[in-house]
Amino acid sequence: MSKRMIACDEASFLISYRTDHRLGFLRWWQLKIHLITCHLCRKYAHQIGELNQSFEVYRHHCSHESCEHHLSPEAGTRIGQSISRELNAK
């Protein structure tokens, strides 16, 4: 692995990667140095953390049937009829 400085594209990949994995020392060090010098990637790292928290909120919100999608009445009728047909056929 190269010991060179990394640019924002690699840094942002490592920021994403480290949300699920532990970085090796060299990668960790490269990212640390990059983050010291790059304010945009520091913001990116912060926002990726917030993105993960946003999904916690989302999962909680949508686990209570409060998400806004609903089966249309026509589809409900059609599906109900197909279930009835199957039940009557048995």
């Binding site: 990394i6 640019a7 924002c8 594209d9 690699e10 945009l40 990637c41 913001k43 990116y44 912060h46 926002q47 917030e50 993105l51 928290q53 946003s54 909120v57």
Partner: peptide, 18 residues
């Protein structure tokens, strides 16, 4: 500037959290 954020595509400081 290869690999640097493109203008307008990098993050700003606006929070993503409700």
């Amino acid at each position: 500037f290869k690999g640097h954020w493109m203008d307008g595509k990098g993050p700003n400081s606006y929070s993503l959290l409700p």
